[in-house]
Structures are given as structure tokens and as C-alpha cells.
Design a protein around this nucleic acid. Structure first.
Lengths: 228, 228
DNA sequence: TCAAAAGTGTTGCATCTACACCCATGG
DNA sequence: CCATGGGTGTAGATGCAACACTTTTGA
């Protein structure tokens, strides 16, 4: 018989205040001693729930994030993906059928800083932005692999529709260039980058400038969302 | 509760003798009167079976195709995807739990002509190569949508690792160009195409030529598979 | 000898890359 | 007045598109 637990797991990227690309991880209490483990946000799908709807619901529950760009990138179906010893304690605590296999569908989502400010709420205890290069190597289940796969997907599918979801509604060209450099993992030439951007019709210069910076203030740009 | 039936469905493309790109569909007897319906090959996943292994097993069962390049491209989780009236008769005949939801994972696979010659076997009654532009519009479940999605994936992800699976082990550059033209849906310039190919290190010219053709015989080329 | 597909180079144009200095601001 | 990042143009190299004729074979 082939009844299987199905879940969704979300790779969520965002900019933090210090202008570094980060991933949102949740903390899970994995035993009665209160030990914790990091994981990406995800949970079992409800009956009669569409994959995308489920991803949105779960993300909202776990992180209060809402209205995201969410892109399915891959299903993970290794029958042993939840069988690692390190994961059994948590499964036993929270799952009705901890021994049963779980297939998961990975979603990628990108959030603007301005959409999500961690608060001193109950939630703030449960989730944390982590630098991309400081992801713990012992995340729950196969979450490290899911993250790698999501990032690889992002790098190969890079476009403005995706990028625009990472940036605040007004941004400087340096911020934009920074995101490209992180995602492509290479330095870009400032002048060439700006020449290319000027060809992209959905990115418009505004008349506003940065304020309060100790250098020449940059003009702010914006995406014409309706044209993306 | 979230126990869900999980299946895999395969979009299989190949070249037929008349050099047209075709898709392999299976015929399903959908009621006791013997009415048939077309579908892409797919079935429920076994317990403790990896997605890819399942896709291979099912494909072998249904089509005797073996040793394929198989690429997962998308999961389809609409809770109503098997609820259409047209699909109930078959579900009632063959499924233990016809009312239960089925989430499916789509795999794309491309086969060489030489690997699969339809025979007058029991199988030949069950499967058929259909021209891409002659796919019935009333395939089982959401299979029309799965095919569209698979083709879109193929066109946007076009690379030699994929293409090499459509061609015989020795092929002419015209055959290669023809495949690109079909998949990209545009004419390519012969000289420019050949210039580009010559830069691709995994494609090697052999010393063999076509035989028995009523024109200048073409040199045969081959992929260095181990480098793909 | 004819038909059919194979094979082959060059040129102009567009695109990309590399590169260095002055400017506006806050501290 | 200093440190910081913002902003700008050009020249040379590279890559891409367009284009037509000769060759080899089987019939």
C-alpha cells in the first residue's frame, strides 16, 4: 500500500539589517530536556490541501510570514530521510506515526526585510535568521540537502521576478548588485552592472535618495511590479 | 491526518522512424465495456521506495523501458486532480481507495529510438507513440497539464545531458540540430550550429560515416557519456 | 546526370569586459 | 578634512548573426 505522509519544507531567504543574505531557520525542542535543533520551516500537509496552499499555511503558522512568492523546486522522497537517529526523539514527541515515511516537497521563498521584523513574541523564540555561510550542519532530517538544492535552483533560475522579492520596495543599485553577487557567487563590475540594469525596463529610478548615510547618498530604485 | 497516495507519472519523449518528436502514451481500459483512455505511464509508489526508483520500476512495468535518464520536474498536488467525473470509472476498477487523493511527482524521460521498438507483444497493445501535436485533450487526470509542464521544463532546461538521451549512440550533426530545432521551436543556421558544437568538448567526431544514403554521407558523432 | 543532404569561412555588428577618478555626505 | 560608498565613459576584445557554394553519394 502506498499511503505516505506528505509535508512541505520551505527555504526562506531574506536580507537582514546588516545587509547579509540570510536563511530563516526555526528552533525545535527535540526532547524533554529542552535540547534544540534547527530546521527549515515545514510541516505535514492537511488533507485536501493543495501543495502551495499548504506551504503558505505552514509558513504563516510557523513564521507569521504572509503573501510570499513561493516556488516549488523539488520533491524529496528518500524513504530513509526521516530515519536518522538524531531525528527520532523529535518525531516521537510530535508525530502520531513517527516511524512512517515522509515525502516532502521543497518550496523556495524570498522575503523582503521590511516584511518581516523579528519581534520579542513567542515566535521570536522559535525562529532565527542565520547567515548563509553559518548554517549548522546537523539540521533536522535532510534539511541541509534541501537548502543546497533550493539555492542551486535559485542560482540557475535567477531573474528579476525572483530577486524583486528579496529587496525592499525602494532599494539602491548597490543592494541589487550585492544580491546578484551573493547568488551568483562572483564579483561584478559596478559600471557594467549598472549599464545592464539601465536596460531593464521594469527597474525605475525614483527621485528619492538614501538619508543618513556617511557618504554620498544613493538614488533609490524600484521595480514596476505590475510589469514583472 | 495527512496520509496521502503518492504516485509518479512520466513524460517520455522519443524519436520515431519518421523523425518526429513523439510522446509515449499508454492505453487504459476504463470500464467493463472495454472503453479506453490515454494516459502517460505512471502508478502508485511502493512503500519504502525512493521516488526515482519508483519511476524506474513503474516505467519498466508499463513499457519495458529500462536504463533511462529520468529527471524529476514537478510535483502535482491539487486535491481534486483525480476527482474529474471522467476518471472515476477507472479508479473504481483498479484502485483500492478510489476516492482518496493522489499527489503525483512528474518525471521527464527521453529515449533513443534504438532502445525501444514497439513489438506485437502484449505491451504493444498498451502503449503507443503519439505525435506531440496530436495528443488527445482528454488524457486521464491532469496528464495534459503534466505533459505541458514537462515540455516547458525541457525547453527551458535544454542541455546536452538531456539531449544525449534522445539520440542513438552515433548520430549526425543534422540529427542533433534537428532535435534542437524541434525543442527550441526555431530554425538554426547550419554553419553557426556546427561552430558551436565544435566547442562542446563532450561531443566527438568518429571516423565512421553514414551508409546507404542517397547523398553525401555524414560523419557520425558521439557523446562522451562519462563526461556529461 | 540529377536530387539530396553534407560540409565549410568571412565580415559586419552588437555585446561584453576591463579599467580609474571625482562626488556628496556624516562624523 | 577624512572616510565611505556613489556615480560615471571608453576602447579593445569577443561573440553572434547572416550569408552561398562545392562535395559526395544512390538512384
Amino acid at each position: 500500500m502506498s499511503l505516505i505522509n506528505l509535508s512541505v519544507d520551505c527555504v526562506i531567504l531574506g536580507f537582514d539589517d546588516d545587509q547579509k543574505l540570510k536563511i530563516l531557520l526555526i528552533k525545535k525542542v527535540i526532547n524533554k530536556k529542552g535540547d534544540i535543533q534547527y530546521a527549515i520551516p515545514g510541516d505535514l500537509l492537511d488533507n485536501d490541501e493543495d501543495l502551495l496552499s499548504g506551504a503558505k499555511r505552514i509558513l504563516k503558522n510557523l513564521t507569521s510570514l504572509n503573501n510570499l512568492y513561493l516556488k516549488q523546486f523539488k520533491a524529496f522522497g528518500d524513504p530513509f530521510r526521516t530515519k536518522d537517529v538524531k531525528d527520532q526523539s523529535w518525531l516521537n514527541m510530535y508525530r502520531k506515526n513517527p516511524k512512517e515515511r515522509v515525502v516532502t516537497v521543497g518550496y523556495l521563498s524570498l522575503v523582503k526585510m521590511e516584511d518581516y521584523v523579528p519581534q520579542a513574541s513567542s515566535f521570536a523564540l522559535d525562529a532565527e535568521w542565520i547567515d548563509l555561510d553559518k548554517i549548522p550542519e546537523d539540521l533536522a532530517f535532510d534539511h541541509n540537502e534541501i537548502i543546497s538544492s533550493g539555492l542551486r535552483y535559485l542560482r540557475t533560475q535567477l531573474d528579476h521576478k525572483i530577486i524583486s522579492n528579496l529587496l525592499p520596495s525602494k532599494f539602491t543599485l548597490s543592494q541589487l548588485q550585492y544580491i546578484y553577487e551573493i547568488l551568483l557567487d562572483e564579483k561584478l563590475d559596478k559600471r557594467n552592472f549598472r549599464k545592464n540594469i539601465s536596460k531593464i525596463s521594469v527597474i525605475k529610478k525614483t527621485k528619492e535618495k538614501q538619508e543618513g548615510v556617511a557618504h554620498k547618498p544613493a538614488y533609490l530604485y524600484t521595480y514596476e511590479k505590475e510589469k514583472l
